[in-house]
Amino acid sequence: MNEVERAIETPDEDEAARDRSEPTADGPEGAGHADGASNDAGPAESAEDTAQTGPRGPRRIPMLLGVAAVAYVLDLVTKLIVVAYLEHRAPIELIGEWLQFEVVRNRGAAFGIGEALTIVLTAIAVVVIVVIARLARRLYSTPWAVALGLLLGGAFGNLTDRLFRSPGVFQGAVVDFIAPRHFAVFNLADSAIVCGGILIVLLSFRGLDPDGTVHKD
């Protein structure tokens, strides 16, 4: 009986030894696989975070050009109308003396500044247009597209006057007609330029770049 019992018990001991030698998910090798999975997940999450902060979607060039076209057309049409119907006539009161339409030929910058620098201001307008064109290559932000579109439309509006109005090319006088009381006379191009500039300052304070990324100082 002793030999039979030993024969029966021996397979159980061998099986137990094999069980002890086989790795489990909780053992060292299983932990290694778990760590590997964890390490693989880390770079994937980092890449995802990087993608979220990078440029998204198509470039916003169509929006930039659309805003610029609207600003330019509105400025051009209003100037044609006021020159045809209001120039050399008495001012039209909109809100009493506080806001009037009065046509003024301005050879300076916005709001009548720098009247002796017409050629210089024309060159500056051209430089602004070139800079905006270069920024457009990495423009993915909608707010930046609106801001740059306003600047572009306003710059083109006043540049058109300087190129085609009297007294001559690069010396033409800009047509201003919006005349608030105790303030300089201006036009829609001036308004677009100022609004675009204010929007750019706000976007810069918020850390939003033209390519759509957000940075924190």
Rank of each mutant, 00 (worst) to 15 (best):
E15V: 13
A17V: 10
R20L: 09
R20F: 10
E22C: 06
E22F: 10
P23N: 11
P23V: 05
T24H: 08
A25P: 12
D26A: 11
D26V: 08
P28W: 07
E29Q: 13
E29W: 07
A31N: 12
A31D: 09
G32Q: 08
G32Y: 15
H33V: 12
A34R: 02
A34S: 07
D35T: 05
G36H: 13
A37V: 15
A37W: 13
S38L: 15
S38W: 08
S38E: 11
N39E: 10
D40F: 14
A41E: 11
A41F: 06
G42K: 12
P43L: 04
E45K: 11
S46W: 13
S46H: 11
S46G: 11
A47L: 12
E48A: 15
E48R: 15
T50F: 14
T50M: 14
T53E: 13
T53I: 14
G54L: 15
G54R: 06
P55K: 05
R56Y: 12
R56D: 15
G57N: 09
P58W: 01
R60L: 14
I61G: 09
P62L: 00
L64R: 03
G66P: 05
V67A: 10
V67Q: 05
A68H: 07
V70M: 09
A71S: 07
A71R: 06
A71Q: 03
Y72R: 01
Y72Q: 04
L74M: 10
V77K: 01
T78L: 10
K79V: 15
K79C: 06
L80S: 14
L80A: 10
L80H: 08
L80Y: 09
L80T: 13
I81P: 01
V83Q: 14
A84W: 03
Y85P: 09
L86D: 02
L86C: 03
L86T: 00
H88V: 13
H88R: 13
A90K: 11
A90W: 09
P91Q: 00
P91W: 04
I92G: 00
I92Q: 04
E93C: 01
L94K: 01
I95Q: 03
G96W: 08
G96L: 11
G96E: 01
L99P: 08
L99R: 01
Q100T: 05
Q100P: 07
Q100S: 02
Q100F: 12
Q100Y: 07
F101Y: 00
F101R: 00
V103Q: 00
V104T: 03
R105Q: 07
N106E: 05
N106I: 01
R107E: 04
R107V: 06
R107K: 13
G108W: 00
G108N: 12
A109E: 07
A109G: 05
A110W: 06
A110M: 09
F111T: 04
F111H: 02
F111E: 03
F111A: 03
E115F: 06
E115L: 05
E115C: 07
A116C: 08
L117K: 04
V120S: 08
V120W: 14
T122D: 13
A123Q: 05
A125E: 02
A125L: 11
A125Q: 01
V126I: 11
V126A: 15
V126M: 14
V127L: 14
V127R: 04
V128Y: 00
V128L: 10
I129E: 02
I129H: 06
V130E: 01
V130K: 02
V131R: 08
I132N: 04
A133M: 11
R134L: 08
R134W: 09
R134I: 10
L135M: 01
L135Y: 13
A136R: 06
A136L: 07
Y140W: 05
